[in-house]
Design a protein around this nucleic acid. Structure first.
Lengths: 161, 161
DNA sequence: CGACTCACTTGCATTATGAAAGTTAATTTG
DNA sequence: CAAATTAACTTTCATAATGCAAGTGAGTCG
């Protein structure tokens, strides 16, 4: 894309996509959660072009998803570590992974999630925080900070998908 | 990207990104859930170039996220409707939206989620299906269908992110 | 001194996207 | 019945993103 920015959009989904709307960004994040930190580690793991990796890492540092840290003074060596913002996104990634497991693993699961302490298998689902019930029949409505344009949008598309 | 495919990768996250790894695809999906169906509706709502919209819609139809249906014989008119596969992805999108609301709405929420029947506010979180507990200390491990390459990967990166 | 490592940068070719205009079939308007 | 309109594109051209390969520079190791 021609560096179109969604920051001006009010939609929180669009604003989020500013940070994670690129597959490379998500795969980098996946590897960062696995524990990868260094430029070369990401490069080898992902098979990404170095020029692209430089851009993607810079983007993610700029958008607050990664922090670039000097972990060795001499010689100067950097590592990229996930921020709190990125850590808060991890459950979303795990839900996405579970979706992939449900639909795109015809030959069986090659990846599974377990509790790090007990080893018990985990199956991520999305529920409402207070009721604990799965999200069915959700309606998206304008919030208090919605502008006129967005309100008109919702007025036109009053629908439960 | 030079149409690199992640289909050959075993990672279910990468395979999922094949379908939703593009921001346009996710925004099209968002609008489809809002009830938009026709080419022009998407075009106007998203401000996307028509040539790009054609490609994105074709992609999403090919990958099973949308179904192209003839809803009028004469004149021939088509609509794009979400498939079951896409509907199953919706909770993930809602979790992503909630993440956006938490972090990228400094001026307050412009979008909120409610129960379509009761109108009560909803707050999507990701939990384990059986315990109902939030996903903390999750470990990603090789599943039964994992190949050697993937197993070696996990052996090297034995870590709880 | 030379080889090696990390973290890039540069150059060139290919692909994706944007913007704007044109196309086609059918329907509505005057 | 000609003219305008609508839906759903296609085409063209310029720009931006990405891949691939090679090179760079600082510092360390032997």
């Amino acid at each position: 894309m021609k560096h179109k920015t969604f920051e001006n959009m009010q939609c929180p989904l669009a604003r989020g996509l500013e940070r994670v709307g690129d597959w490379w960004n998500i795969l980098i994040l996946r590897d960062a959660f696995y524990g990868l930190k260094r430029f070369d580690e990401f490069q080898e793991s992902l098979g990404i072009a170095t020029s692209t990796l430089t851009r993607r890492l810079d983007d993610m540092v700029a958008s607050g998803m990664l922090e670039r840290r000097l972990y060795c003074e001499r010689p100067p060596r950097h590592e990229y570590v996930v921020t709190d913002l990125a850590r808060d996104f991890r459950p979303v990634m795990l839900a996405m992974l579970a979706w992939g497991n449900r639909h795109f693993a015809p030959e069986g699961r090659s990846v599974e999630l377990t509790d790090a302490d007990t080893g018990v298998a985990l199956d991520p689902i999305v529920v409402d925080r207070t009721t604990g019930r799965p999200l069915t029949r959700v309606k998206v409505v304008a919030g208090p900070a919605a502008g006129d344009a967005l309100r008109r949008r919702f007025a036109r598309m009053d629908r439960v998908a």
